[in-house]
Amino acid sequence: MKTIILAAALRLFFPLFIFFSFYILIRGHNHPGGGFIGGLILVIPFIFHVLIHGAKETQEKLFLKRVYSLRRKEQESDLGYSIRNIGYRLRGLIPWYSRQDKDRVLVKQYVIEPLHIIPVGLSLSLIAGILPLFLGEAFLTGVWAKAALPLIGKIGTTLLFDIGVYILVSAVVLKITMEMSKS
């Protein structure tokens, strides 16, 4: 299924799906949608990526993070190098601003393993449950902030809970698809 058109289309749809899924998550409290549906939508482009490129490549492209440093110039002072390097590292955090310098060195690389995201989702939901306990409320009570945010609306622990669901569902589905595709 390695078609160029699909691959190109996917690149286009990637941010779209991500934003759409987030939109579904946020509006879920008042309209059809919610963390679960949102999470499923979030993984759609990833699944397509897996289907098109295979799990190995998906991992390589989407989940492999590399951290680079600049190569040290000759006779450069420690201080100067450090300043330059920190600047470079900071720029590296912004995806579209990172420079493909030739004189960089790979410091370390790590794979973002969906498995490690699973407990994050679980603990977010759990925290949403435990927080109200400290406010003297029952477990999993919805506690709401006084002020409302623009676009998102009122913020409450239920939203946090739903975000936990969202993260977990996407991580789980991603993990399952990637494992199945790998084997």
Binding site: H29, G33, G34, T158
Partner: peptide, 14 residues
């Protein structure tokens, strides 16, 4: 009380 209009979702998260 639960500040949500989508009752199904409110049931699920609250």
């Amino acid at each position: 009380e639960a500040k949500g209009r989508n009752i199904v979702n409110v049931i699920l998260v609250d």
